[in-house]
Nucleic acid binder design. Sequence first.
DNA 1: CGGTATCCACATCGATACTG
DNA 2: CAGTATCGATGTGGATACCG
Lengths: 136, 136
Amino acid sequence: MTEPLRADMFQPGCPSNVTPFQIGDKWAGMVILCLEGGPRRFSQLRVPLRRVTPKVLTETLRALERDGMITRTRYDEVPPRVEYALTPLGRTLLEPLAACREWAERHLAELLEARAAYERTAYETSRTDVFERSRS
Amino acid sequence: MTEPLRADMFQPGCPSNVTPFQIGDKWAGMVILCLEGGPRRFSQLRVPLRRVTPKVLTETLRALERDGMITRTRYDEVPPRVEYALTPLGRTLLEPLAACREWAERHLAELLEARAAYERTAYETSRTDVFERSRS
DNA sequence: CGGTATCCACATCGATACTG
DNA sequence: CAGTATCGATGTGGATACCG
């Protein structure tokens, strides 16, 4: 546990998808993180976000733009180019986001452990009624 | 703005419902906060949560219990009594939760302002295609 | 009191196809 | 390249009624 679970939240099967924290919708937090290093283009965002569909990415970007978290800059060129970047307000999200990430790095293993223990006991003990835990 | 928008996130119409932060599902974060001051009973939780339905509250509590964030203690009395309380692990959530709340208190007004400005310009300016923004 | 059991409305996400 | 347009699956929450 010296290495603090450098979890890659962009990995679909990554356990950090299990964190109780969510920034806005499913993708907004990741978009914020993708923009931390500077402006990014639409297509650039689609890569780390594991093939989020353009529709959903557009919706996410519009929502973030609407709320003043990012800017959308369109350059009149051919081929067209559009860049998204964090606003100062959007940058303020990085701080609490870091707090959430830190929590995950410190405690995710405990959460997973508790969850596993719960699954185990659910099958043996005295809960009056055990509901289904089947996962497809 | 000296008063930092002591927003009551438990109020249904409260603008803090607009914050980009969410702990788990819709209610989990509020439950954590409700338990900050000590153990609470099922019915006690329903009050500040503005009449969340028992079904949803049960689901929320089960999920938090499963993940080791809260404990469920049943006392064999008549009438039956059940208490929910934060585990040590659950208490660790209070710190990042505080970071999120602080963000809201500091920046919620800016977010709302940006949103309002966006609504305003959406009706007058040169976006190639203005989508509907109607809210029922 | 502390929940369950159904049923349903709605929002969100995804897949696919197409366009300025 | 940077989206838009549809359609459909899924799932999360709410309303209501009932139970040990």
